[in-house]
Amino acid sequence: MAMIETRNLTKHYGDEQAVQGIDLTVEEGSIHGFVGPNGAGKSTTMGMLVGNITPTVGEATIGGEPAGTHAARERIGFAPQDPVFYDSMTADQYLKYIGTVAGVEGSVAERVDELLEWLSLADATNQPIGGYSGGMKRRLNLAQAMINDPDLLILDEPTAELDPQGRSAIIDALQRLTEEGKTVFVSSHILAELEQFIETVTVINDGQLLMTGPLEEVWESVETAYIVESTDDDRLGELLATHEAVSRTEPADDGGLTVWTDDPEAFATALPAVAGDAGLGLYSIERAGGLEEAFLEMIDEGGA
């Protein structure tokens, strides 16, 4: 069953077209990456899903309920990109306030304690939020999104401006959420870290949808790059440049040879054969870049 479904979702601000006719489906229980450069329309799309922004045209549903309705918002936890809190409040006070507003069933205090413990904020629970570090604020942002135990979490750049340790803590929390069967719709610039557990992905640029679907389809739709190290990289480059499985070759920045291919399977067979025929030895071969590079390439091809 679809947790998120949009049809021709569009938002105009005057003459500016922030989002243009987005059609996407996110299945229940999946973790869905939402990718695009700054200004692509990710936050506007998320705002429309949450109900904070009214679409100019089109519609979105959350678990079958029209986005923005009370029933839809009961199923959503939203963490905006730049979370702003009431600085003089403590995390405990803030979450109790948000929990009451969100209509948390049962004991709000128990739910708050549980979340503060889970997100390692229990030690700072009585400290004013104004004194929190960026990482602590991000975790508090996640906590407020989860306060009413939503089925769907919409997270806008949850790891932006965090150090590696802070990113790791958020990534761990997201992994645990997916294990609990939550649907997570997440935009992020750190795809290299997310790609391990993203199942489906949507790529947008300039407000337009470039692709949406399973992650494997992304890999299939873009060129794959490999870094190859051999006994003579220049000679290997000349030989591979004319091979049908290879798009192009280029000396790699840190030594070795970068080889782009549209057909990784054919390349895997061709490389040892070409090197063997020429009497060249192969030291190493590894995939270059990751999901992020693949998306950037897709965005470039999409006419960014």
């Binding site: 109900g51 905006p80 979370p83 948000i98």
Partner: peptide, 14 residues
């Protein structure tokens, strides 16, 4: 203006 309303209005409050 500050942005706290974005979180508040995302909750199931009328």
């Amino acid at each position: 203006q500050r942005g706290t309303l974005r979180i508040l209005l995302s909750k199931p409050i009328k």
